[in-house]
Amino acid sequence: MTALRVITPGLQSSIQDLGRPGFASLGVAPSGAADHLSLRIANRLVGNPDHSATIECTLSGDTFRAEGAARVALAGADASPLIRRAGSTLAVPLFQPFTLLPGDELVLGPILSGCRLYLAIAGGVDTPPVLASRSAHLAAAFPNLTGRPLREGDSIPIGAPTPPPRSTPDPASLRRFIAAHSLRTTFRVLPGPDAALIPPEHAPAIFDSHLTVSARSSRVGVRLVGGPACTHPPRTSEPTPPGAVQRTPEGELILLGPERPVTGGYPLVASVIAADIPAIGQLRPGARARLAPITLDAARTLLIDQQQALDALLPPLPA
């Protein structure tokens, strides 16, 4: 068993897997990777099952020291990572597995476009699961690395590696898949239960308009600003499904993320379709985004096509 040591933390890096559905009735959001497509690709490239825990970096990545040899892969937003090895530096690729030798420093550096980058290590991050997942829930009082971002000096234990995949695809094909599915900025939406609260004259400013991602965005939700303010009648707190879009009286649209409040009182004016939820996690402050209405049948087809396209490029490990 090996470990990665955090030499310099990124802006907000945390342990993430596919999350902990099943506890929402205790008020516990599922958490998990903000972009599960990038997480799945990174895991599959090193021979991990999709649910293995990875390191999710936000806007800037960490510098890690390998305490033993490890096969790793990076997937997600664009970056220019490198390895410091015995006095020299080597550029390392995204979307392609490579090996860290004991003592290597992996420098992930700034994220250049998009918001999040995933580092998978063969064997997976092996911290103790809490409520059936290793995912950090940064907004809640969870213990140790399930409750906070990575810090300088943290030692991240890695499990026993499984065999590598027999072959991995051209990194350019995986990069194109992520560009099309995780880095898109048009979000297909279905009407929410409170869609009728949108005054008709506000609809053009909400749908098919370019809105700006606020710096007050997080794993709880990504805030889009630029829409008109609107006073809604008081509403009871009701459940918020994955991808739900809340509208605040100030006119902000909140695209709820993996640490969303599982119930909330702001009106739900729309829902981002499941196929486009990973792209919410890749919106960086200052980016422009647009909501485009779609039908339920089309949403389901898009999701199934997305799953099939990913599996055709890089099949999952048999469970």
Binding site: P21, S25, E238, V262, A274, Q307
Partner: peptide
């Protein structure tokens, strides 16, 4: 996956791709 109560409604949340 989850069955969450609110004040007047509950949400049954399923694996994506469900019919």
């Amino acid at each position: 996956l989850d069955l969450v109560c609110g004040h007047h409604t509950l949400a049954a949340i399923f694996s994506p791709g469900i019919d």
